[in-house]
Amino acid sequence: MTKKTIVRVTDVTKDFDLGKIVVEVLKGIDLEIETGKYVSIMGPSGSGKSTLFNMIGGLDKPTTGKVFIDEVDIAQLDAYELAWLRCRKIGYIFQTFNLIPVMTALENVTLPMTFAGVPSETAVEKGMDLLKKVGLEGRHAHKPSELSGGQQQRVAVARALANSPSIILADEPTGNLDLKTGEEIISLLKDMSDDQGVTVISATHDYKMLNVSDQVIWIRDGRVDKVQERDELEINTGGMSS
């Protein structure tokens, strides 16, 4: 089977102009992420991990270099195409869950489908199905404020999957959750990745993520420090625990 690349980052740099000084956050990053992989981007705070992550998600544009999603250079897309990309190709999961507080769990899940032009009934049906998959059957009418952190993140996972995207981008998805709930969310993401062939890219400090990752990209000081495949990783994590 030929390996297909879904995300390709070539020589990306990003500077932030802070008036008097220009901070170089990314200093030339080259990456290729294969379809269907569960990839973790690891790195200390301030390493440029989140910036890289935002570039991959089409939320921010690089100063130089190119980001390709499905071999499309996202710098070439206009506002409509970019919105379409965010709506159909990418599912976002945030550290702070970011559910729309005035909407119920089901409405949160169906919102991206509404944007995608899915008829209301189909959207509700799929939304209920997704909520069931993430283990929230019967909670569809609850507002985010009536759900626990873990449950909110489950709704967010269901929402990210709504338009069957090719990529799920998760920014510290377990950052605001306790150990056990975090593990549940990680295994949920892993199952979704295995079942539906979605590429999961997650920025994290959470070492629990390592166990499920197919590939770990270590970012240090604006550069790719190393890329480890799953088999190399097990030796390493074993090494750490000893």
């Binding site: 409509y80 965010r86 709506c87 970011n98 995608a116």
Partner: peptide
Amino acid sequence: FREIGTMKCLGALDRF
């Protein structure tokens, strides 16, 4: 702000 940002991440256009 966050709600609007989230909607945009989900694909909302400026005019929505």
